[in-house]
Design a protein around this nucleic acid. Structure first.
Lengths: 266, 266
DNA sequence: ATGTTTGTTTCACTCAGTCAAACCAATTCT
DNA sequence: AGAATTGGTTTGACTGAGTGAAACAAACAT
């Protein structure tokens, strides 16, 4: 991402630590537990080095090892940390009650997300009881170009930032409707910027629809976004326009105010 | 557990990594963001060493630095990891629907926890809408001796394990009703073990009541515990005995079965 | 202006981290 | 059964990565 070629802070990188953190980051929803050998083949580490890293992570309770299978998985320390991270996001704290209100009023699932590079990271969600819908948990992420949330967040980037993103990430197609070219995306973002919301009509997954609106803070920058999701079945274009969109925009505006944004025609 | 007294795995400890992890663990709900100097005074680290560790953690997205205040706070990587940790706890996955059912039936807050050393760590919770109640989030922890959950979990420890705990942790009093001596605790745990549930009558906080029941897995060990909490106002002794306790025990039994425990008179 | 605090950078010394390779214990194959 | 394979644990020697002291810079308070 940032390439201050000559004097990056990364000059201070301490390798033993970096390796340990990389190892830790190997664990994911798909690979919740790993063996020493899996780790060694996934990372360019010597077996004994990996072993020592594991021992250290385990001693610190960042990992626990199942004594039978010898498999490692994230420990409670990680959990604990994760939640302090979550709670340190003040956007979330502030937005929470408004999201609840919105979700209740519409009886639909409402989510809150921030941008991390070119990815949309979910940081909160109030679900309705419908069976179908996004199954992604808090903390997980999706490419930004194919979600309403992502597009709203991208729309506020400086031109240069967006350019950088577009050269390093390609716009993978998830459905026939996914935006796959930089040109089309740029146009879409311009529209979104002026209309103050974004739509996702089956760009990520067939049958899935979403509307998202940006949240502004004191500085006038977009710091997060809220969306309402539903299936093509229970959200008609009419309902979306007449009921959902106004409620969403109102909620987003309220939250922005609570975040200290100047009242204005967002 | 095996104690090859002079050959603990900790011999493999790699210090640079350990220090980094300790630094990371400094962040908590109370101290969600820290400056370099705060860190240096909290840990036995040289300023420049701490600086390098911070740089490394930041490069790996484990921390982010507010460019204005220079304060560091946990990054999204940590969040992400935290949730994979949470989801890797299969107890939680399995218990979830039963907890929801229980919470709905009683219209009270229901929590799920595991034991970590001498602490009770909350790993899930379904809240009711009442204003008062435990304000602790998932991932946070409390001393085990003063909560119903904790006592249920302690009750299953081997005598030796409990002894070890009691010598290293003292039983801090949170209210006049808190159990503060090992002898009393041992007696209480024996009772709990045979009756299959634990009560907490204002042992942690005045006005707060809880009942907890253990969850068993295939091996017959207690792996987690469920509880129902409420205030002394809305939970009468009668209601507790006649309505809540039976429902709780039934739910716990169901979950245990789902975890593969042998059906039996728990 | 002057002192104080906090963050950044440099540098020389040495010990911590690394890799290769041996070792051991289970599995699986013949 | 023995042989071969796989995955985990342990050792030791070499050396560069990590360390602390101390100088430097910038921000802040007085």
């Amino acid at each position: 991402m940032k390439q201050t070629s000559i004097s990056p802070k990364s000059r201070y990188n301490i390798e033993a630590l970096a390796r340990g953190l990389e190892l830790l980051a190997l664990f994911s929803a798909e690979r919740p537990s790993l063996s020493l050998s899996q780790i060694v083949e996934a990372l360019p580490l010597n077996k004994s080095t990996a072993y020592r890293i594991l021992a250290t992570l385990e001693a610190q309770q960042y990992l626990v090892q199942d004594p039978l299978t010898r498999l490692y998985r994230p420990g409670l320390k990680v959990l604990q940390l994760g939640f302090t991270a979550l709670n340190s996001l003040e956007v979330r704290q502030i937005a929470r009650p408004h999201l609840e209100k919105l979700a209740q009023a519409l009886d639909e699932t409402v989510s809150l997300a921030v941008l991390d590079g070119f990815r949309t990271v979910y940081i909160d969600r109030i679900r309705n009881q419908s069976i179908v819908g996004v199954m992604l948990g808090i903390g997980s992420s999706l490419p930004a170009h194919c979600t309403a949330l992502g597009k709203v967040l991208l729309a506020d980037l400086a031109a240069g930032e967006l350019d950088a993103m577009l050269t390093t990430h390609d716009l993978r197609a998830y459905t026939p409707k996914t935006i796959t070219t930089p040109e089309v995306l740029r146009v879409a973002l311009a529209t979104i910027r002026q209309q103050g919301y974004a739509l996702d009509d089956e760009e990520l997954s067939a049958g899935l629809q979403a509307v998202a609106a940006p949240l502004y803070d004191q500085t006038g920058r977009v710091v997060a976004a809220v969306n309402v999701t539903g299936t093509t079945l229970n959200i008609s274009p009419a309902r979306l326009r007449d009921e959902i969109l106004p409620a969403l925009k109102a909620a987003a505006h309220e939250i922005s105010l609570a975040l200290g944004a100047a009242p204005g025609p967002h």
